[in-house]
Design a protein around this nucleic acid. Structure first.
Length: 354
DNA sequence: GACGGAACCG
DNA sequence: CGGTTCCGTC
């Protein structure tokens, strides 16, 4: 019964300094996922984002096509992984896709018609859920950037302005953070293995594997380092705050303001001179693609001058997420198949029949 | 394959 | 609530 999947364990949120300006009302759904302590189950779209972030799964699922668009290259494998995570040995793509379809109404996802196994994230939605501080910033600047539904916690707007991974990346570009040494080791060598969650899922390799418009994507390093601050987007219970030292006041308005197009004067030096990343284009409305993106690819990573730098030693000893075992899942209710967790060696297939 | 209703579950 | 399971329909 008790299916205690190891992967479900999330590191506890570090005591965050409560220094946020009260008064901001967020849409109820904005902090839903983890708001209810106790029922902290991994959500499918979280999981998808996770896989998307991991390079090792690019043969299984990867960003492709439009912004926020991803294709499930290997439905069975994704379903299998999801099944492992949820301790549902009988998971398959049919069931998984049903769950995915439920996201349509919730506006978290929608289908890219015509393309098989291809879905698209509604980033503006996702971002609020995961990174309420964005909305906070929006509120602070009085920016209508993100969907600010009715203050009555009513239903979200008809269509949220889609954010792109690049946008987020820009928004979250740390303005010259302190020394990398200041990083707080969130995990020990032991818990490290359990680390299935990493900050900023789609920031990670989102813009990374984007093999779309070659010119639009800046030289983003795909390795988006974890943030020095103890901000765990997965546990956005109340409101994650960042250490004041690492989170200068100008950081709030800046990215947002820039996104609004009327950025006052960001510290050109280290400040994230974000680009006009306002994207009010609906899904497929305008030609989209903020032209500023091309000029925005300036990541101010904690210890990286550039993408390559961020990569560091290339195949770093990244403690992969070995979610290949069902240990912890009580395999009783089902006739569980021993799931030996085969090393999913998914070499690139010949043709990506599209 | 993709969709969505319906019953069910933790 | 967020799926899971099952299924009929297109």
């Amino acid at each position: 019964m008790d299916c205690s999947c190891v992967s479900d364990l999330l590191f506890a949120p570090p005591a965050l300094p409560a220094l946020w300006t009260p008064g901001f009302a967020f849409p109820d759904w904005a902090y839903k996922p983890e708001s209810s302590p106790g029922s902290r189950q991994i959500q499918l779209w979280h999981f998808i984002l996770e896989l998307l972030q991991k390079e090792e799964y690019q043969g299984v699922i990867a960003w492709q096509g439009d912004y926020g668009e991803f294709v499930i290259k290997d439905p069975d494998e994704v379903a299998r992984l999801w099944g492992i995570r949820k301790c549902k040995p009988h998971m398959n793509y049919d069931k998984l896709s049903r769950a995915l379809r439920y996201y349509y109404n919730k506006r978290i996802l929608h289908k890219t018609k015509g393309k098989r196994f291809t879905y698209k994230f509604n980033f503006s939605k996702v971002v609020l859920v995961n990174y309420p501080l964005l909305d906070m910033a929006a509120a602070a600047t009085g920016s209508p950037l993100l969907l600010t539904p009715s203050p009555f916690g009513g239903a979200p707007g008809p269509d949220a302005p889609p954010l792109t991974p690049e946008t987020l990346q820009t928004l979250f570009s740390a303005p010259r953070l302190g020394e990398p040494g200041a990083r707080t080791p969130l995990f020990t060598s032991e818990t490290d293995k359990l680390r299935l969650d990493s900050p900023f899922p789609f920031l990670g390799s989102g813009a990374t594997s984007y093999s779309k418009p070659p010119g639009l994507l800046g030289p983003y390093g795909r390795a988006f380092p974890e943030y020095p601050w103890n901000f765990n987007p997965y546990l956005t219970g109340p409101f994650p705050k960042l250490p004041p030292s690492l989170y200068p006041p100008h950081f709030y308005p800046n990215p947002l303001a820039s996104s609004l197009g009327h950025l006052p004067s960001s510290g050109a030096g280290g400040g994230p001179t974000a680009a006009p990343l306002l994207a009010s284009t609906g899904e497929g409305l305008g030609p989209e693609r903020p032209s500023g993106l091309a000029a925005a690819p300036r990541l101010a990573l904690p210890g990286a001058g550039g993408p390559e730098a961020a990569l560091g030693g290339k195949e770093d000893s990244d403690s992969e997420l070995e979610i290949t075992d069902v240990s912890g899942c009580s395999s009783d209710s089902e006739g569980d198949e021993g799931l030996p967790a085969p090393p999913k060696a998914k070499a690139g297939k010949g043709g990506t029949g599209s």
